[in-house]
């Protein structure tokens, strides 16, 4: 379970970054799309990361 949460949360960080990289490269033209993907990735990170990071912080 912990490993799945870990993998999902790392994926969410990749998803967070990809749109801004694509936007810089001119491969993604809509800034609104970038913002929405970043928001979804943010939500995903804050749902999955505490599942494994909260206990590690103890």
């Amino acid at each position: 379970m912990k490993m799945i949460a870990q993998i999902l949360s790392w994926i969410s960080l990749v998803v967070l970054m990809v749109p801004s990289v694509l936007f810089l490269a001119g491969k993604m033209s809509s800034l609104d799309q970038v913002k929405w993907v970043m928001l979804l990735a943010t939500i995903f990170w804050f749902v999955t990361a505490p599942l494994w990071m909260w206990k590690e912080s103890d």
Partner: peptide, 17 residues
């Protein structure tokens, strides 16, 4: 601690955008 990695990447995204 949980927010830190995410926050660093959002800062980076600010620059790229």
């Amino acid at each position: 601690n949980i927010a830190a990695p995410w926050m660093v990447l959002v800062f980076l995204a600010f620059g790229l955008i």
